[in-house]
Computed example of a mutant assay.
Amino acid sequence: MASASVASTTVGAAMGTDGGTAGRTRAWQRARDWAEIQERMLVPLYEAVYDRLEVGPATSVLGLGCRSGLALLLAAGRGAEVVGLEPEAELRSLAQDRSLRVLSDVYRDLSPETGAGTGAGAGAGARPAAHSLVTAFEHLSCTADPLALVRDAARLTAPGGCVALATWGPPERCESAAVLGVARRLADPLRRDPYAPFALSGPGAVEQMVARAGMRLVGGGRVLCPFAYSDLESAVRGLLSTGVFDAAADYSGPRQVEKEITEALHPYRREDGSVRMLNVFRYTLAERIPERIPERSR
């Protein structure tokens, strides 16, 4: 999608300032850390949404910001037709290695007639095929313009189809809140878009965006998603792979960020060395109203 609303939060920092071999190596390592360590933490959320919507062979799923594709893989296992959008090349490659169809730009890469890849030759006004379910499981809480993302999701949904939006639950129900606070505390205090993971956790926040995007609220729920790691090192690597600490690392240095993440994790370390934090995630389901077509975000 052309909109910056679904751009990966990890692209810039993952590539590194040199943009060369070292930067690419870091990007690949972080993508693997996401796929091997962090991605599974939200499986209860994915499954809850799919169960609620009875995702199956009749469902066409588009995953916005699908990263390495586990949510799509689970939907495909239920018989759904799936396609994903992931701007970050390394994550997209890992998803494609799972035999998933994952694109870098929905408007550029989908033909409005057939849904087939058309590459850079597609016109700027091309409209991709609509889907019966569009998901935004990870990006809504960290994008700079969540309303633009919701509007884009609505536009890509078939009339009468559904959009699933996920956010962190209330901070008092999320043991990872203290760790996430490192991202804000160590970032540039003058940064225009500081990371605020719980900005959309309050009552009515997502619902207001749903209404402004021309959709109708049809349900939602809360899901317990434990963040469980075999050891402290895995926990740090997994959390860093999310990209939410990038601005903090740029401003305060990677070592300081890793040090403070490690300190914040200590209360959740168990006797066997593993780390476990209980978190609640919230999902909101909205229906695309047939007579309302939101403008495409720019």
Results as ranks from 00 to 15, higher is better:
A166C: 11
T284Q: 07
A183K: 05
A235I: 07
E287D: 13
P112S: 13
A199E: 03
R191E: 12
L285H: 13
R222G: 00
L240R: 15
L186E: 02
P203Q: 07
G119T: 14
E36R: 14
Q29T: 06
R78C: 02
A130Q: 10
E138N: 12
R101E: 01
E86S: 04
L285I: 05
R67H: 11
L100H: 04
V102C: 05
E81S: 11
T135P: 14
A148K: 09
R216Y: 09
V11K: 11
P189I: 02
V150H: 10
G117N: 13
R78H: 09
V150F: 10
A27I: 12
G123K: 13
A199P: 10
D272P: 14
G243C: 05
A211W: 08
V244G: 14
A75D: 03
R151W: 03
R92A: 11
D188A: 02
V106G: 05
L190F: 13
G56E: 04
G243Q: 05
A14I: 08
E271W: 02
V179E: 00
T143G: 00
R282G: 04
R269F: 00
D51P: 13
R40A: 04
R282S: 02
S252V: 14
W28F: 11
R292F: 12
T17G: 12
R276T: 10
L100T: 12
P171D: 07
V102G: 02
A116G: 09
V236N: 02
V223L: 01
I289Y: 08
E36F: 03
M277D: 02
L239A: 00
E263A: 13
T9L: 05
L149M: 06
L165I: 10
S60R: 11
H131R: 14
A177F: 09
L217N: 11
S5R: 09
T9D: 05
A14C: 11
G12V: 13
S111C: 12
G204A: 05
A199N: 04
T242N: 08
W168N: 07
G23L: 10
Y283D: 07
E291G: 10
A27F: 00
E113D: 04
G123F: 06
A211H: 12
A213W: 12
F281E: 02
Y107T: 03
A213F: 10
A248M: 07
V236F: 03
L100W: 01
L147I: 11
A235S: 07
F137Q: 01
V218G: 08
R32G: 07
L100C: 08
T157A: 04
S234F: 01
G20N: 01
R98D: 01
D145G: 03
W34G: 01
A196E: 15
P226H: 00
T167V: 15
N279G: 05
A158R: 10
E260H: 06
R92T: 12
W34P: 15
R216K: 13
E138M: 10
P87A: 07
F281C: 08
E36S: 09
L74Y: 08
I289L: 11
I293T: 15
L278A: 00
A164Y: 01
D231Y: 09
R192Y: 00
P226R: 01
G19H: 04
R216L: 03
G63F: 05
G243H: 08
A154I: 12
E54P: 14
A205T: 14
G23T: 14
G169R: 03
E233Y: 08
S241D: 00
G119N: 12
K259V: 15
E258L: 04
Q29G: 08
R237C: 06
L156W: 09
A213R: 09
A177M: 10
V244W: 07
